[in-house]
Amino acid sequence: MAISASVMNDGRTELLAKEVTITNELGLHARSAAQIAGIAREGKGGVWLIKEDMVVDAASVIDILTLACGQGSSITIRVDCHEDLPVLDRILALVEKKFGEEN
């Protein structure tokens, strides 16, 4: 799975990837993965999750599960095109608010 360059059309580079630590108790289990995939599917281009050297499609619950992200693991969320930055931010916010698990 290739990741396209993070260079915008006007030549200006913009950060299309952000790193975040999984802090919810359960990690990226089936239900939290489903929430991420739901948002990622709205992206126009690819949305990826990266853990160490593994890159998976954020639109696939199964793919996310194969990362086996427990609590405390650190992942990078990456989008292919800058229009998808809002998608990235929404996933980021979701992870940061611990998927609403601990209310």
Binding site: R31, A34, A37, D57, S60, V61, I62, D63
Partner: peptide, 16 residues
């Protein structure tokens, strides 16, 4: 039933 809801999501998963 929560498990079954996860199954519904998996049905349409890209990887499957």
């Amino acid at each position: 039933a929560n498990i079954l809801e996860t199954h519904v999501v998996l049905l349409k998963d890209k990887m499957l």
